[in-house]
Design a protein around this nucleic acid. Structure first.
Lengths: 212, 212
DNA sequence: CGCCTTATTGTACCAAGGTACAATAGACAA
DNA sequence: TTGTCTATTGTACCTTGGTACAATAAGGCG
């Protein structure tokens, strides 16, 4: 369970708010990086290898907090966002929440609420990271297989007999066995059950009777 | 893909709003049931077997829309909710969204926005129903197995050899084979891959080497 | 041109899964 | 008590999976 210290990014065009938030979060034990604009944040290296989240002001010149959220989504850069705003505009808050924001706090807000939201956000990010790591690991494993082996794999996890696979691919049963041996070895698995689960995590679809 | 006609529930203490919403939604082709209070709705038979959602007013005497949302959640009665409100209160909207509301519309709202939200809500409900039906189906299948058979099953989907299962449970390999045959037959499966997938859907955990 | 990877196949053998044809024993209900 | 369900086990046999011992052939690369 060794884990890097969580990192909180803050983006707010009001430098006094930025400073006080920074102080608050640092004193709460977080690593903090503060930015005065969305652009500045986007140009930074926010793709850190630690659980993180973004505390984001809504109203900012040039690129608003909502724009930044949109930008991160379209670039497929997952980042839990906690909005803070002095603007009381329900459609904004609803839109932000629909797009996955963790919370939407109106200034002035309780420190406790922000810290709680951050806890939630970090927990989300940890979860997302672990799921995505699981997925990547499974993909890496499967990537060790040759295309032909992956083809055989999709038949194996469909529960087909070697005989059937051989027929489907028009090769000998012996060849299927050879590939299958390679698959089990490369995936470091020693049962069909294991490779079924691994394949599911990797998103491999079982072949449907007809050649896929 | 035969499916019952979607059902929209409306709860609003303002009977004129209720009437006009009812008319709008009926004319859009939905079945509609309207209620003047949360309590009335809760006392009704809203557990229909069709995709549905709830259009819910926030401000109501006795039990507010948010209270009703909370009540449904705590009773584990899933129902996509679209809030409509004349109250401009961001924390309410954020809270509602955090608790899974589909949308939170402020009056007056565009008909189009409501209809779109309803589309989304119904799509959500269809998805939820299909997932939950898949789950129930898998559970029903597994429920056909005797406790002992389920025990064997958890070992089988862990990828264990009959020999190992026999050792773990201190029975003969022949007995394991007998149970295994029963399992395959009752689950109408003809490969380990199939029962691994079925078991996953049913939430059966593979046994960890030690007797579970 | 050799070397490596990949795909293919063969023979032979053993281990594992599955089943047909059984029997025994306990629990529980009609 | 009798019958059914469940769990258990045995013997014998066949199928399937897996592997050890290979060999052949095509394609890419230094």
């Amino acid at each position: 369970m060794d884990e890097r210290r969580p990192m909180i990014f803050i983006v707010d065009d009001d430098s006094s708010v930025l400073t006080s938030l920074k102080r608050l979060l640092k004193s709460s034990g977080y690593n903090v990086a503060a930015f005065e604009s969305a652009r500045e944040f986007l140009d930074s290296d926010f793709n850190v290898d630690a659980p993180c989240c973004l505390v984001l002001d809504v109203m900012m010149p040039e690129m608003s907090g909502l724009d930044l959220q949109e930008e991160l989504l379209s670039r497929n850069l997952p980042m839990p966002i906690i909005f803070v705003t002095a603007l009381y505009h329900i459609p904004s808050s609803v839109s932000a929440m629909k797009k996955g924001a963790i919370d939407f706090l109106t200034k002035p807000f309780e420190e406790r609420d922000l810290l709680e939201a951050i806890q939630t956000a970090l927990q989300n990010d940890r979860k997302r990271r672990s799921v995505s790591e699981e997925f990547a690991k499974a993909k890496r494993r499967v990537a060790l297989l040759t295309p032909r082996e992956q083809e055989i794999l999709s038949h194996v996890i469909a529960g087909k007999l070697n005989k059937q696979i051989a027929f489907d691919l028009d090769i000998s049963e012996r060849t299927v066995k050879a590939h299958r041996g390679q698959i089990m070895h490369k995936l470091e698995a020693d049962s069909v059950a294991e490779i079924v689960r691994l394949s599911e995590k990797a998103g491999i679809q079982p072949s449907t009777s007809r050649g896929d």
